[in-house]
Structure formats: structure tokens, C-alpha cells
Design a protein around this nucleic acid. Structure first.
Length: 273
DNA sequence: ACTAACCTGTAA
DNA sequence: TTACAGGTTAGT
């Protein structure tokens, strides 16, 4: 479900609700969600901890707790983190309930792909999944030059390269297609064939589309909601994603829909090359 | 570099 | 009934 703008929106809405609160009880309703920990031990460690900060890295949410512990969450396709100010009966697909000293935080996930991992804070970035992530596209020190270097070693097409979290952290199927359309580059273009000027356009498009989506609180097509249960609005501003066979908003030609990197890919054959 | 696997729900 | 869905990974 969520890509960078959605995870960032969840982070921001969570901050307003749970920062500084204490976890007073943990219920693990579906044990595999806690990954490598026995659910009883997971609950034992997390119980009594205070939520000291919530950060984002790519599509991961990092909760720093006190006593040197952290929770690392990935929502995959349909995971949700929902805050309730009052005690709430868990809905159908809820796998984890954190009772706080003020309200409750529920983790639910229809498809059961999402995970919340408990790990000592100082070992966080040793997690293979976090260690291999590429740069944050919205960081101040991420430049077009950095993007160029990241892409330089790749022999694949643009779509495949941009979906690769080791190249750049946080893009998924929606924002790759949107950024490529906005930069006028075809998803099938070989990465090594890009000029410096094209890298610059791609860089600008990636940053712009991510910023715009965060401003709109993310894209809600089906499942995505922020921590308050509210949908985002960026679905109204998508230019290609989900618009296969519909007219291009720039030139009117019908958009192409192909399969690339195992994902549905939509683009305009006239506007993107 | 692709595909299957992990899951459930929804729409064609 | 089949295909497909904001993702990642382990296996060819």
C-alpha cells in the first residue's frame, strides 16, 4: 500500500497522537506479525516502554522506545497503523494492539504481509532491509548528481531501477510511473542511456511528485489511511497511474499499459521517450 | 533478471 | 473463475 508519501503522512499523524506516551499493554493477536520474537517475549519487552521518537527511512517507520529498544514497522501492501483515543474493539484484521496511557494504537493488515520488528536501537541499521536502502530522495543532500551516480552502475531499464530500494528509498509503483511521466522519460529506457540533462529532469520530477503527494496526505486508492483513519487526496492528482487506455493529460493520446519489473506500468508513448 | 511466494478482497 | 492490488524476498 504505502510508498514514501503515505508512510510520511502516517508518521506525521502518529507523532501528534502517540509521541511521549507509554505502552502499558500489548496484545499480539496474530503472532507472525512480531517476526522473530515469541509473542510473549515481544509483549514483555515492549510493555512499559515509552515512545520517544518516530522516524521514517524509505517505506519503514522507526519507533524509538526508551531502555534502548526500537520497533521497525513495514506496512507492505495493506498494513495500517490506527490511533484511537478511546478503548476500541479490534476490527477484523487487527494483529497487534498497543494500549497506551492515553488511547490505543492498532496495527491491522488484511493481507498479512506487514511486520513490526522489535530490535535494540543500536542494531537497527544492521537490519539487512534497512542497511541496503539507497538515499532518501527528499533529503537536502540528495542531489541530481547523487541520483546519477546511483543509476550509473545499473544495466536495467528506468522502471526496474527506480523500484529498487537499494538505488533510492521510498518509491513504489505509483510514484515511479508518475515521476517518469513528469520527466518525459519512458519506463523502458535503459538507465545507462540517460544524459545529464535527463537525470536532472528525473531528479526534479521525483522530488516534486513526492512533495506534492505529502502535501495532499498521500494517495488513497483502496486501503491506505493515515493514523487517524483519514484518506489522502493525491489520487485526484495522478496523471498516469491507474489510467491505462485513458487519454494522456498532455497530448490526448491513449496511455499505454504494459508489464515491467513484474508490475503494471502506464505511460504515454508520445510524451515519454 | 524473472517468477513464485506470502495473503485476502474485490472486480471483471 | 480468474486476474489483479501502494511490496519484498527467496528461489531458479
Amino acid at each position: 500500500m504505502p510508498e514514501l508519501p503515505e508512510v510520511e503522512t502516517i508518521r506525521r499523524t502518529l507523532l501528534e497522537r502517540v509521541l511521549g506516551l507509554n505502552i502499558i499493554e500489548v496484545k499480539v493477536l496474530w503472532p507472525p506479525v512480531a517476526q522473530n520474537w515469541q509473542d510473549r517475549i515481544f509483549a514483555e519487552v515492549v510493555c512499559g516502554r515509552k515512545i520517544e521518537s518516530i522516524e521514517r527511512r524509505g517505506k519503514y517507520l522507526l519507533f524509538t522506545l526508551d531502555e534502548g529498544w526500537s520497533l521497525v514497522a513495514h506496512l507492505r501492501m495493506t498494513g495500517r497503523l490506527n490511533y484511537y483515543s478511546c478503548v476500541q474493539v479490534p476490527e477484523r484484521h487487527t494483529h497487534l494492539v498497543f494500549s497506551l496511557n492515553q488511547g490505543e494504537l492498532h496495527f491491522s493488515d488484511v493481507r498479512k504481509f506487514g511486520r513490526i520488528q522489535l530490535i535494540p536501537t543500536d542494531l537497527r541499521f544492521r537490519l539487512a532491509s534497512l542497511a541496503k536502502l539507497g538515499p532518501e530522495p527528499l533529503d537536502a543532500d540528495f542531489t541530481a548528481n547523487t541520483l546519477g551516480k546511483r543509476l550509473a552502475s545499473k544495466k536495467t531499464n528506468l522502471k526496474t531501477a527506480l523500484l529498487d530500494q537499494r538505488v533510492l528509498a521510498g518509491l513504489g509503483n505509483i510514484y515511479v510511473d508518475e515521476a517518469l511521466f513528469r520527466s518525459g522519460l519512458a519506463p523502458e529506457r535503459k538507465v545507462c542511456s540517460l544524459s545529464a540533462d535527463e537525470i536532472g529532469k528525473l531528479y526534479g520530477a521525483i522530488r516534486e511528485v513526492l512533495q506534492a503527494s505529502i502535501l495532499a496526505h498521500g494517495t488513497s486508492l483502496r486501503d491506505y489511511r493515515d493514523a487517524n483513519g483519514r484518506a489522502g487526496n493525491f489520487q485526484d492528482l495522478l496523471q498516469v497511474y491507474g489510467r491505462g487506455a485513458q487519454p494522456c493529460l498532455k497530448c490526448g493520446r491513449l496511455l499505454e499499459k504494459i508489464r515491467l519489473a513484474g508490475r503494471t506500468t502506464v505511460f504515454c508513448k508520445s510524451c515519454q521517450s
